[in-house]
Design a protein around this nucleic acid. Structure first.
Lengths: 250, 250
DNA sequence: ACATTATCTGGACGGCGTACAGGAGCGTTC
DNA sequence: GAACGCTCCTGTACGCCGTCCAGATAATGT
């Protein structure tokens, strides 16, 4: 301490740091959901006027980007760094670590999928995953597609889970969520949706982490099978209407 | 036409219908993104005062729910209804139909994953998918988990894709999106992220629909393998920190 | 000491979702 | 047919949001 920081700026000393602002934003996010993390709320929490925040971030989107970056930076890389373990165990460890880490701040999940994740921490995470898949013996193309698949599953799964319990505040414990889900689904008319009702009754015995891992294991199995027999993509009728709309122009 | 509708309400005739409001909301969504679909904007487009909308919907969330329901209701069920075809082809047809349908309104994707999809059309879709998986020979529990896995993949994949090109308006054609992606990724410093850069270079040759199908095929393969050898879930270290937080209370 | 520049403030603008009160249209009931 | 009562739409307003502008203040470079 007491190390006098060299100050390059000319004006008065800053009252805060970017990190303090992100801390306040994260607290508000955890307490009151995404709506509570407003510029004015953040400013009030750190004790400055609302527009003082614009000294540190150019606009709210930058604050959100910083928040996402901070959260992704907190992911523990050690739990899947051991290259001696089988690759699917390492992927599973990564998936569980990410899930645990992101579920601790459910309000941030919509912010993540709301914009591109291209910050340095996001890229680092992607890089680690690609390295992991390369260790597993996948070629560059398959590794890239497999990482995309895994990322979609991990983030999509958490996003859907958060969406189902979208009240602000921390996620309730898993048992409670399962119970609420059971109640909600069993309220669906079994006459109109017999299989949904049956599925609800069956699924109620499974905690959602187990369900999460089931899907992850199917994906890992599919990737492993692809690795074993790398046949080409079958003849598929690509009917991407999105691309067709502006065809024949230009 | 000219069928005089019986009017049960006592007051003056309604100037609009719920559908007109949803039409206007969808138009605004397509033109200007999620932000443009405001209550005031919708009201202006249909030519009423902003609060007149509250005659038809109790609040904005209800409008959004109606919008999501309308979009899900527009999914063509015929493309995967043929029970004579192999089940994985039917799932693929469903996935492609959903992708094409939702990509036509990218602004709506954040609205879908922003809240639970529990409307009648959403349940119908889930019901069809469960039926499809039951036709494939999966038991109720596996069918439920497999449908969850597929739904996560389809919606998560579209959501991430939309997030990467989050400017309002319709999605650009696929070739353009791939080019933009290539440019963005190749701008990542190859020194810090060598594998990401390599992946970007490799992936640039693949259109995103192909990538989408690659992941889908891995999932289908994983499900099929599970169907063939239904071994139990392996011994997995469940470390759900979410559930642990409130343990030992109550 | 002076000029320069970064920082924070009060105030304001336009937009949002939405609540409240009032007036006008229309079916119901005497 | 006239009065009633319900329904719809409007004007207005409140509190919130993100963000900009002008001004005061504090620190640095010269």
């Amino acid at each position: 301490m007491s190390v006098s920081e060299i100050r390059r700026r000319r004006g008065p000393r800053r009252a805060l740091t970017e990190d303090e602002i992100l801390d306040a934003a994260l607290d508000l996010l955890d307490e009151g959901g995404a709506d509570a993390a407003s510029i004015r709320g953040i400013a009030a929490r750190v004790g400055v006027a609302p527009n003082a925040v614009y000294t540190y971030f150019p606009d709210k989107a930058a604050v959100v980007r910083g928040l996402v970056e901070r959260l992704l930076g907190g992911v523990d890389h050690d739990v899947f760094a051991d290259r001696a373990r089988p690759w699917h165990e390492r992927v599973e460890a990564l998936a569980l670590e990410l899930r645990a880490h992101l579920s601790a701040h459910p309000g941030a999940v919509p912010l993540m999928i709301g914009g591109p994740m291209d910050g340095p921490h996001a890229l680092t995470l992607n890089e680690r995953l690609l390295q992991l898949l390369a260790d597993a013996g996948l070629g560059p193309a398959d590794a890239a597609r497999a990482s995309y698949l895994l990322i979609v599953y991990v983030f999509g799964s958490i996003a859907l889970e958060v969406a189902d319990t979208s009240r602000p505040g921390p996620l309730p414990p898993e048992a409670e969520r399962v119970a609420a889900r059971k109640a909600a689904f069993s309220a669906t008319p079994a006459d109109d949706f017999p299989r949904s009702a049956e599925a609800a009754a069956t699924m109620a015995g499974y905690v959602s982490t187990e369900q999460y891992l089931w899907g992850l294991h199917r994906i890992l199995g599919g990737i492993a099978a692809r690795e074993a027999t790398p046949e080409e993509l079958g003849p598929v009728d690509l009917r991407d209407r999105t691309g067709l709309r502006e065809a024949h122009s230009a």
